[in-house]
Design a protein around this nucleic acid. Structure first.
Lengths: 151, 151
DNA sequence: CGCTTGCTTGGAGCGCACTCCAAGGTTTTA
DNA sequence: TAAAACCTTGGAGTGCGCTCCAAGCAAGCG
């Protein structure tokens, strides 16, 4: 199902990926990845330096060549970033992936904890939404009152 | 409904407030506010410096005395902070409140825009939740496979 | 061949939201 | 009344997540 590879990767990639990638290609320059992900090249190189990326392939002259698998990983990182997960925690997850299959349990726990975080953040936001709606209604009413006063 | 006051405040406070405040009191020291809000005293003073707070009452010797209304405002600020709204935007809202009733329209617009932000952040999080659940299921299945292999 | 555009690196810099410090005045408790 | 706990200020420092810089190598084009 997944294409074979000798390097360690996240063993669970999920269905076909989002931001249209040209079919049947598996080598992207950093600027192509910038276009797909919306991250800057600076950020991509920084992610690598801090250990958030798996080993990235290089061309014969040393330039980065990202694979579809790398793009999938960046998609996950992007999602986790939206949840407010600190980069250090994502690095931890990346380390577990690099360490191999025997870390499945740890990854499972980490993801479950993250899931709980996301649920409570959603709840917080819905709470905030209620407050916002009350205030919006207040100002809408006040606006109507002013309008009728003016007539 | 609201207690009277000559200072400008947010005209829409909403129902009784959360973190149990002693009934019938309207003057709190900074450390009491720290206990109610979970913010540090440093942060409270910093909020004041940057214009995020209305004018805070002082004792005859110059120490801060927060009112229930100030605590309500801090509750709102706390909620907005959870949405990821930049402090600068909250300061803008605080300025509108200070400028008086003729800014109702602007406040309405600002709150509506914030509401939209919150809705899309909730959608993002639900999207992320789906990704997380797929991965969690993957690792749960992998765990079961390992268990049966072991038996 | 020269020109433009793109990629490389280590390290420095930035913006945000706090967070803390020093030095002093105030309030409470024993 | 004396010690301990709390409050005041302006300004400096911190941690995070980037963001940028300088200097140099590489690739494509006329």
């Amino acid at each position: 199902m997944e294409t074979t590879s000798t390097t360690r990767t996240d063993s669970c990639a999920g269905p076909r990926q989002v931001d249209r990638r040209p079919d049947g290609q598996d080598k992207y320059t950093i600027s192509e990845v910038v276009a797909f992900t919306g991250l800057t090249a600076h950020t991509l190189r920084w992610y690598e330096r801090i250990g958030l990326m798996p080993h990235i392939d290089r061309s014969h002259t040393g330039q980065r060549r990202y694979s579809n698998r790398d793009l999938d990983w960046l998609d996950l990182v992007g999602k986790l970033r939206l949840t407010g997960m600190p980069v250090a925690d994502m690095v931890r997850y990346a380390e577990l992936v690099r360490e191999g299959d025997h870390t499945y349990g740890d990854r499972f726990e980490l993801l479950k904890a993250t899931r709980e975080d996301v649920l409570s953040r959603i709840a917080e936001l819905q709470d905030t939404l209620a407050v916002l709606d009350r205030k919006i209604n207040f100002y809408a009413d006040a606006g109507r009152a002013l309008a009728s006063e003016r007539s």
